[in-house]
Design a protein around this nucleic acid. Structure first.
Lengths: 168, 168
DNA sequence: CCGTGTTTGATATGGTGGATAACAATTATC
DNA sequence: GATAATTGTTATCCACCATATCAAACACGG
């Protein structure tokens, strides 16, 4: 703290010099841009983000939407079966179902065969909401992806991702 | 509970009957298999899972690895800059850095120009670990993806995901 | 200079998902 | 009929993400 504490270089304090000379030079991603896992996660976040926007009027998360879809395609199944196919652990599936049931989108019905299990089914409202959600997803969400990648690009992407998801 | 409570059919008690007749029929994914977001997330989980396995000997998560990569490619940057380019919020980046610094993989050095900020740098050990991690990632992780998709397939996938991550 | 506003790293905190253990009720098995 | 397994549930823990706030340090206008 003898002669120059700040006087060091107010004239081009590295920030101003940067603006003039190098515009604060952006951070280089480097090899990160070749890391499939990194780009994959980034893309996934963007896609989910857009999904939420597109289906916002119906207040459905990707997980909730996927449950409604499964219930519609698989009537008569119980919680364990639905949760398993979605890769959700049974304990965590309970509150997810609670949220849907509290909104009267689906219902748990005690099975007659096995009184331990709950048969899951969509309510009328659930079917209606699902139908509207599907339309939003197709007309806004997937449409935007189609626009960005092209129909064939989207198919190719889907095929490769499916391969990874199933065989990796 | 009059005549047959259990006697209903021990011989094919609905589970056994299923095994014989329908093998407990798998739950149908239905339209879920065409939902890009769903497949994308599934694939992402698989890839991260494999990454963890491949780089397990070095005890590095994808996030930690990406930080080491960035520090190596961008010497002299501070926490805010690194965190921002990774999409990590500054508060959450603190503990992530703590974990790396406590293992002596990187270090925070007070900047001379701006004594608020910490210049981040890899330690010798950090560089060594990063080098070993890179080898594992390339030789095991990315190699497996190459094997599954083919070199051109992997490139095409990377290109489309990058497009989504950047332009979506 | 000085006061106001901003930035940086940090802490605290809340919310959400994922994972395990344990439990009562029910069913399966022998 | 006793023992084991399954189903839904609760409780709990941990990892991530997000917001508000703070002290220290800087920037800037008067």
């Amino acid at each position: 703290m003898a002669d120059s504490a700040k006087p060091v270089g107010k004239r081009e304090g590295r920030k101003e010099a940067a603006v003039a000379v190098e515009e604060t030079q952006a951070v280089q991603l480097g090899e990160l841009s070749d890391l499939l896992g990194y780009v994959l996660k980034r893309a996934q976040l963007k896609v989910f983000e857009d999904f939420l926007r597109c289906v916002a009027p119906l207040q459905l998360t990707p997980a909730q939407f996927s449950v409604l879809l499964l219930l519609d395609a698989n009537p008569g199944r119980n919680q364990t079966e639905i949760a398993n196919t979605l890769g959700i652990l049974r304990p965590n599936f309970v509150s997810l179902l609670d949220s849907l049931e509290s909104r009267d989108l689906c219902a748990r019905v005690r099975s007659a065969n096995d009184r331990r299990s709950h048969i899951l089914m969509l309510t009328e409202k659930g079917r209606a909401v699902l139908a509207r959600a599907k339309k939003l997803v197709v007309s806004k969400h997937e449409a935007r992806l189609n626009e960005l990648l092209g129909p064939d690009g989207r198919e190719a992407l889907l095929a490769m991702l499916t391969k990874i998801a199933e065989e990796f």
